[in-house]
């Protein structure tokens, strides 16, 4: 575990906490894309299914449980919570996210570390995470009233993968040249998608 990765995980955790705070404190999910939240839940379920088979560390297992339960809680709130669900911008959140799931799955079948169920799920989760923010970015561009917490949520979410890129650079020079091209390319695409958001976020 290096500082970049730890910072990345903490930034990711913080982004989820900011979103939970926004939804809990304001009892509203206006400006939040439910589709992006559903995609993230799929990403975590597909990537962390080794939770019960491979024990890497207490930290690793605890964080996996936190990410799975928090993303499921957010989706549940946006679908079932009587007050919150009424504030969901259904008409605005129109991105056809099924296309993203299908594309990530096809890519994972073609490009993976090994053609095994677990590796295909892992690659699928990496590709899907790279594009999962798209419905949210589209919603932000449509919505006039981007409240601070939602903006901060997206900012921290974008920043976390940038820290991971630093982590991969660090590991490349310290742990030898493993082939991590799936993570590399997806991480660059993922962070790149935030570029214009960061541009406007800092200009605002």
């Amino acid at each position: 575990m290096n500082a970049f990765r730890f910072l990345g995980d903490m930034t990711h955790l913080f982004s989820v906490l900011v979103l939970l705070l926004k939804i809990y404190a304001t009892k509203s999910c206006s400006g939040v894309s439910r589709k992006t939240q559903e995609l993230y839940m799929v990403v975590f379920l597909a990537r962390y299914m080794d939770l019960f088979t491979d024990y890497i560390s207490l930290y690793n297992s605890v964080m996996k449980v936190v990410f799975i339960t928090s993303s499921a809680a957010i989706v549940w709130c946006m679908r079932r919570h009587p007050q919150v669900r009424r504030t969901y911008d259904k008409e605005q959140d129109t991105f056809r996210h099924v296309v993203l799931v299908a594309a990530a799955f096809v890519l994972a079948l073609i490009f993976n570390e090994r053609f095994t169920f677990r590796e295909i799920c892992w690659a699928f989760s990496i590709y899907l995470e790279a594009v999962a923010i798209l419905p949210q970015l589209v919603l932000l561009q449509r919505g006039r009233n981007v409240d601070n917490l939602t903006g901060q949520y997206v900012f921290f979410l974008g920043a976390y993968r940038a820290f991971y890129i630093l982590n991969w650079i660090y590991r490349y020079f310290t742990e030898g040249h493993h082939s991590r091209w799936i993570s590399w390319l997806s991480g660059l695409v993922q962070t790149g998608l935030y570029a214009d958001f960061f541009y406007y976020y800092f200009l605002r």
């Binding site: 990765r5 995980d9 990711h12 080794d50 491979d54 890497i56 690793n60 964080m63 996996k64 990410f67 570390e113 090994r114 590796e119 892992w122 991971y164 982590n167 493993h178 082939s179 991590r180 993570s183």
Partner: peptide, 10 residues
């Protein structure tokens, strides 16, 4: 079984 490299990350 050996964890494929890079899968020790979140």
């Amino acid at each position: 079984d050996d964890v494929v490299d890079g899968h020790d990350e979140l």
